[in-house]
Design a protein around this nucleic acid. Structure first.
Lengths: 112, 112
DNA sequence: GCACTGTATCACGATATGGTAGTATAGTCA
DNA sequence: TGACTATACTACCATATCGTGATACAGTGC
């Protein structure tokens, strides 16, 4: 049962930093934005339409995603094109997704 | 740049569920508890000592972790032994950890 | 310069959540 | 049964964060 000790114990500070990253992913609006950027860059107006979020809201969440380096932006004239700067983030989401999928399908099997 | 579309677009409900899972991991206290359980079950009193959290606090967070099925418990006499019921969770944490580690070491390299 | 568009920011109310202290409950032992 | 221990639960306050509406700012074209 016990796992091998791959990693030395994380300090409180380390835990805090990790927790902070997870927190960024703990908001549906931000996940939605990441999904919308999954296949390439988008400018803000497009993101507003893709996500059904308000302009201020999109801007705020993009700011948060940029703060932690998950996305970055490229300005061009009036437009700001956002893109995922850390593709590994998508792997994390993917992993969580498949976990949930597996769980739910397992649970639902109990009723079939 | 663009990723292959491995997964069909997640519904709002799906996003909400994924976000909720990430939220559970977005709290240092809960990460600390998961770490403390990484190598095997522990009873609550041991967890209190391992984590330096108060009893009520430990109990509350363990409840949250149990609600989403990340840990489970086995009662034995007066003691409650908690254990990780979904080891994949540790992989997720591990992944986030190494990401951070890589990021920071990359950033710090700019000053060497 | 002026009007317009796209984006960022600010202020604010509402809600959610963490920590704590206190209390309740259940198992144990004399 | 009664005292004791281990754990769970409740009520509360403090803080953080979301969404929104209003406003500011920057780039473009006339």
């Amino acid at each position: 049962m016990a796992r091998p000790a791959k990693r030395k114990k994380l300090s409180d500070r380390g835990l805090q930093l990790v927790a902070r990253r997870f927190k960024v992913l703990s908001e549906p609006a931000r996940l939605k934005l990441l999904m919308a950027l999954e296949h390439g860059e988008q400018h803000v107006t497009a993101l507003i339409e893709l996500t059904d979020l308000t302009q201020g809201n999109v801007s705020k969440h993009l700011g948060i995603l940029m703060d932690v380096g998950m996305v970055d932006r490229r300005k061009q004239g009036l437009n700001a094109f956002y893109f995922i700067s850390d593709p590994q983030i998508l792997d994390l989401c993917e992993l969580m997704c498949s976990k949930l999928e597996a769980e739910f399908s397992k649970d639902s099997a109990h009723f079939r």
